[in-house]
Design a protein around this nucleic acid. Structure first.
Lengths: 198, 198
DNA sequence: CGTGGCATGTAAACGGTTACATGATTTA
DNA sequence: TAAATCATGTAACCGTTTACATGCCACG
């Protein structure tokens, strides 16, 4: 409980837009931070209650108007201060966990073709990620908004794009290398004579 | 316990080099996978015992010879099969957790200069990471080894290098942008007239 | 009226880290 | 022999996910 970055994500979310419910916060986090953060309901709802108890947020209109009943929240001044303090603290490098790299590293121990299949799958996921990020990017630029937050969002988005593009570029060369390796190792007898072209 | 990627990391480690102790496995993981995986003693020792109980590894020479007493382990045939099965399974995308990006996204809510400081710190960490990876790369190439695992290791290393370099490149442009923003916003009254040059 | 999705919540399980305990071995 | 470090281990805690429970509202 002393750590709980969840609390700060929620404070941050409410700092950008007030009167959001737990459900909406979950949605917003998935949409906006999907590529670098995630929170589950089991984490969000209890944390919201805790934040209310601590006076960092307060219950705002339970918008039952036309819609369903959903409790929304707004940042208090104390909450804003708390968020600012946290933001100024050095960021922590979360323990690295990349199962793909692990499986690639042990690729030699796997059946032939397994590593190659993993790289292909990574490419697929990364291209999808790229499309998502480019979509957000396009929308943000088109909106012509002058939200003072926008420069920071674009910066964050830019890092996501840069990393995804780098991963995709790596994947392309890795695909070629692995294909060559599999030909060398997996098919002992086969000179280059596949397509009867020309 | 049904998940526990720890077990597979240990199996993988022992698949590359036999007769390693828990302590040595910890070292090897930190050295070789440091940039994409981590394990703590509190996870390693119990898992090793469990793997022995399951017959996936077996206690090998407790090398008390000259050195300290340390229990070393070796992969069993069952363990090798288990590792191969896991390697063939689709890799899972671990839940994204990038506190840096979170703080950058909320940068506008922070005191002036905070976001910039974070980017600078990220650059520092990334350059250090790059140096480490380039060191490994250089060493691997210089060794002239023909270990059949090497191609996979180089591929993995290559991805680490690509991502780190991309992050550094992004950081350089972000630094410039943030500096410009801070000048615009943080110092309301100041036309361009800083250095009395020429 | 019933079904399916919206919205909120909770309990338990889980993976993992941290902190601590302990002895043995090298080094000063 | 004292200090430092190697090596193993464990108990407690922590953040998080998963699975489940529950009502409400819209739609067919």
């Amino acid at each position: 409980m002393k750590n709980s970055r969840t609390a700060y994500v929620l404070l941050g979310g409410l700092s950008i837009q007030s009167n959001l419910s737990g459900y909406e916060l979950h949605q917003a986090i998935k949409e906006n931070f999907g590529s670098f953060w995630g929170e589950s309901y089991g984490q969000i709802y209890p944390t919201l209650k805790r934040l209310v108890a601590e006076g960092l947020i307060e219950a705002a209109g339970s918008a039952t108007a036309g819609k369903k009943r959903r409790q929304t929240y707004a940042l208090t001044e104390a909450g804003r201060v708390c968020l600012r303090e946290w933001l100024a603290l050095p960021f922590q490098n979360d323990p690295p966990r990349n199962e793909f790299m692990l499986k690639l590293f042990f690729g030699r121990q796997a059946a032939p073709g397994v590593a190659l299949a993993h790289v292909r799958e990574l490419e697929r996921r990364n291209r999808q990620m790229l499309a998502t990020l480019e979509g957000i990017d396009k929308m943000a630029r088109a909106s012509g908004s002058h939200d003072p937050n926008l420069p920071y969002w674009m910066l964050t988005l830019g890092l996501g794009l840069a990393l995804t593009r780098a991963a995709i570029a790596w994947g392309e060369s890795a695909l070629a290398e692995l294909a060559a390796m599999d030909v060398d190792a997996g098919e002992p007898l086969k000179t280059s004579e596949a397509e009867p072209s020309s």
